[in-house]
Design a protein around this nucleic acid. Sequence first.
DNA 1: TCCTCTTACACTTTTGAATGGT
DNA 2: AACCATTCAAAAGTGTAAGAGG
Length: 366
Amino acid sequence: MMMDQAHFGEYLLRQQMLHAASLSGLQHRVGADAEPPVCEARLLNGDLWRRFHDIGTEMIITKGGRRMFPSLRVSLSGLDPREEYCVLLELSLVGRRRWRWAGGTWAAAGGAEPQSPRRLMLHPDSPAPGHHWTANPVSFSKLKLTNNTMDAQGHMVLTSMHKYRPRVLVVRARDAAALAWGAPHAAFSFEETEFIAVTAYQNDRITKLKIDNNPFAKGFRACGQSKCKRKNTDSSGSEGTEPTSSESSEAKRPCSDAASSCSEEGSLRSTSPRSPPLAESPAPLMATPENITPPPPAFYPEFPYLGHLPMTMPLSLWTGPPMAGAFAWGPSLPPPPPRAPTPPQAAPAPCRRVKSFTISALLGEG
DNA sequence: TCCTCTTACACTTTTGAATGGT
DNA sequence: AACCATTCAAAAGTGTAAGAGG
């Protein structure tokens, strides 16, 4: 690790300062010029999400961080092609309950435990002009979930046995620092993306669905080596059993639902030379209109589970080496002008390639 | 005893450097 | 020299199973 404890404390403090500023700024802008939303979002891998949702989606959380599967992939529209936007993801606690797997179903089991400071994940392409966001799928496939409250890797800290719902925030802002002055644009969430955080899968059907659709779990499929090996070792007469038609079709389908498995990487893989062009992604699965939650009247939603606690919102940037690009929040940094008008441009601004995105880089420091 | 969490493991996929051809 | 395609090893990601701890 490149940061000692003292610097880490400073890092955290700066994070909280930044996000306190961000939050107050967002709320202020809402009151100042709340505009009718024009932005729309579609859940690209909605079909897969619905299959999980029908059973009761579970997401593994580990100390070191575990990716979401399916990951959140949305398509945005209705953005000003020349305006700069930041896209963020947050995970909202659903209800104030703790859940428990009992008798083959999820049931409420008391009140929610105190939650860790909420985190926002800034999409690594942020900021980017509207034409970039509308031309490319917005993928959060690199997002990791953890139950480690001391996490310093920038992962989303969740509590096991609690239900969460991802929410995508679109903020008009030229850079991360300008988030505090950027005008909020829209927020979206999809009911079928709700999930319960767990440290071990409770529902066998969820396990099977994950294995059948997640390429990394291919080894556990009915025809996978791992499975066969296990069959050979712990069963004597079942080696000849054929998988069910549904199982075999699922297992053999290399990248069906590919929107969620193989091609899920989406825009985040765009820098890889081996990455297929985004245009080759399978046809998006349309989310029904009622699944699109319009922006709330007050841009930033209320979080009843947080009560009136002072909000701390570590903003996570999951690209680049963790902590390596610690925020450079210096007093010498002049605040950006409050929403300076965008100079007219002859053509849409070129998309900014962001491979290792840091606040300091955005601010032109370092 | 039950429930939840951690850890090691074997497996697959992804990534990026190295290499060779044009 | 520059570009492209291929190869290969390391890194990363996956669920399982056993065991620890409250």
